[in-house]
Amino acid sequence: MDSTTQHYRTGGHEVVEDITRDATEFVAGRGDGLLHVFVPHATAGLAILETGAGSDEDLLAALAELLPADDRWRHRHGSRGHGRSHVMPALIAPYATIPVLAGHLTLGTWQSLCLVDLNVDNDVREVRFSFLAG
């Protein structure tokens, strides 16, 4: 298995960041196999969805409704509502696996691989890309 990490600056705001280009570049020319992507953070996740047509903003809005940034959370350090960021990975998993055929991701026409980060207290995220040859 071959593995590498990338770092992403997500800033001090909630974000759905498209990382498909980096995933595509990592698997290019590798033949058949699986790309496993993992975010080693307790407050970030990965989602496969359409971007650029409003779905990324819709995801953030849905998470804001499901996980409000208020004082209901028992996990209370950090900014107001920080505890919700620790619950989010149960809904938006910190991993994704994508089949790779002939060195190309097999994502659908409108699908993108995205880093989802609600934690405004940590502005740099690490993502591990691992390729398992088939």
Score class of each variant (00 low, 15 high):
S3M: 08
S3H: 04
T5S: 05
R9T: 15
T10C: 04
H13E: 15
E14W: 04
E14M: 00
V16R: 01
E17C: 05
E17I: 06
D18C: 01
T20E: 15
T20K: 04
A23C: 15
T24Q: 15
T24L: 08
L34I: 14
H36V: 11
F38E: 05
P40A: 05
P40T: 10
P40N: 11
H41V: 10
H41Q: 10
A44H: 07
G45K: 02
A47F: 04
E50I: 14
G52C: 09
G52P: 03
S55A: 14
D56R: 09
D56G: 04
L60K: 11
E65N: 05
D71C: 12
R72A: 03
W73E: 15
H77K: 02
G78E: 12
G78N: 12
H82L: 09
H82Y: 05
S85A: 11
H86M: 01
L91T: 08
L91Q: 09
I92F: 02
A93R: 13
Y95L: 04
T97K: 04
I98P: 08
L107W: 05
W110N: 10
W110Y: 08
L115C: 12
L115T: 07
V116D: 00
L118W: 05
L118H: 01
L118C: 08
N122A: 03
N122I: 11
V124Q: 13
V124M: 06
F129G: 10
F129N: 09
L132E: 02
G134C: 03
G134L: 14
